[in-house]
Amino acid sequence: MLDPDLKRRILAATTSERSPTREQRAISSALRAASALAVPLLLFALAGGPRVGPRPVGLVAMTVLGTSGIAASALLLAVGRGPSMLGRSRRRLLGSAAIVPVAFLIWKAAVSSGVPHMMDPWPTRPGLRCFALTALFAAWPVVALVWERWGSDPLHPRALGLALGVAAGAGAAALVDLWCPVAHLPHLLAGHGAPILLLGGLGALVGARALGVRVPR
């Protein structure tokens, strides 16, 4: 038998602590999504915007089309929850986090290998700038994505954080691809792949605390 006083207490607590309805939340989610898109684009513009360099325009378009597709799929999988309130399964989240960086690098290397000299070594470009730019462009999207899903995952917050970090990293790396002409494999690994993994790791670390459901202290 439930204590009627408990129900009164809980109802009183819900009255004193307002929570957004679905409609109100949709507005704040849209604002977050817009800012997650706008801030990196703004930073990208400040950093000089697209740079074709020695690449044919077709190659730039192909590369960005593929990497954007990969990033969009990763975002949809990580942010979307499907038909269940419990979101994607751990296996899917981990699978996405594992596949995205690999697919990203394979695509970039495969497309570039079709054009002569595109995969030649660039000794002066080890990938530090690409690494820094990817991390910079992904910083706000990661915050926005974690904010969006804050305290909402009772099952596997760490895996969700990992997938969100990787998705944001992939989005930022797609932007960096518009700027960076280097497709030499060590450069790709250090400058384009590593930041995605780093952001995934950070996401997993933050996710365990920020995305999970916890008893308040």
């Binding site: 408990l6 607590a13 819900t14 602590e17 679905r22 939340r25 038909p83 269940s84």
Partner: peptide, 24 residues
């Protein structure tokens, strides 16, 4: 129980149309 119900209350705006509330 109180924390669970409050959690549901806080997340009401996130509730997906057609989702099941019990497993959640």
């Amino acid at each position: 129980l109180q924390h669970t119900m409050l959690q549901i209350h806080r997340a009401r705006g996130r509730f997906i149309v057609g989702a099941e509330v019990l497993p959640w």
